[in-house]
């Protein structure tokens, strides 16, 4: 059945859960329609912020257009979920930059396939004090951080990397707020 296959794309949904959900939709067509409509509505309204790359309804997004926030600091993350995790923790009041992936030659993803160039442009144009690199501490996350550090060092901006308070192999969006706080506070400056 194609529906169960499609449902298995969702994180945390295995074959059994997919079958249960599919069966529920089939036996409750009204609920199924409601879900389909709200998914479509969200998809038609949602876009990527032209500045930070986060998902948003308004472009630029509410964070990029806010004047309450510290506009001299950018926190670089892999994906929109990471922005959500840091925002939820309420430990950071600067701006963001979403890369939309990590460098991974195995997946045919080089530096030009993720939003590094736009970040370099921002570093040139915006009046920044600090760029915090908050990619996950995986091999790809570290490699991407290294690449960013190299690409950004010509600017007179402090480049830092969040500390390794996050357990290895865990995604940022799973890390609890305390761990995130510690990681943010313990960030270290990149030095050659």
């Amino acid at each position: 059945m194609r529906l169960t296959e499609a449902l298995q794309f969702f994180p945390g949904i295995g074959k059994k859960s997919a079958e249960r959900i599919a069966f529920y939709i089939l036996s409750n067509p009204q609920d199924g329609k409601k879900i389909a409509e709200s998914v479509e509505e969200v998809l038609s309204k949602i876009k990527f912020c032209n500045i930070c790359g986060n998902i948003t309804v308004e472009d630029p997004c509410s964070i990029c257009s806010s004047h309450e926030r510290n506009r001299t600091t950018i926190c670089v993350v892999e994906k929109p979920m990471d922005v959500f995790a840091i925002e939820r923790a309420g430990i950071y009041d600067g701006l963001y930059h979403v890369l939309g992936g990590l460098i991974s030659p195995l997946d045919n993803r080089g530096p030009d396939e993720i939003r590094i160039e736009p970040l370099i442009l921002r570093a040139k144009k915006e009046d920044l004090n600090e760029i915090i690199i908050a990619t996950n501490p995986t091999t790809e996350g570290e490699a991407t951080a290294l690449y960013l550090q190299e690409s950004l060092k010509e600017f007179n901006i402090k480049i830092s990397r969040i500390a390794q308070g996050i357990p290895v192999g865990t995604d940022l969006d799973f890390a609890d707020d305390i761990t995130l706080l510690r990681a943010m506070e313990g960030r270290r400056e990149f030095k050659d």
């Binding site: 460098i103 030659p105 490699a143 290294l146 690449y147 190299e150």
Partner: peptide, 11 residues
């Protein structure tokens, strides 16, 4: 054309 092989060597 490859880009960024240094970062993997560093790693």
């Amino acid at each position: 054309v490859i880009k960024g092989i240094e970062i993997w060597e560093e790693q």
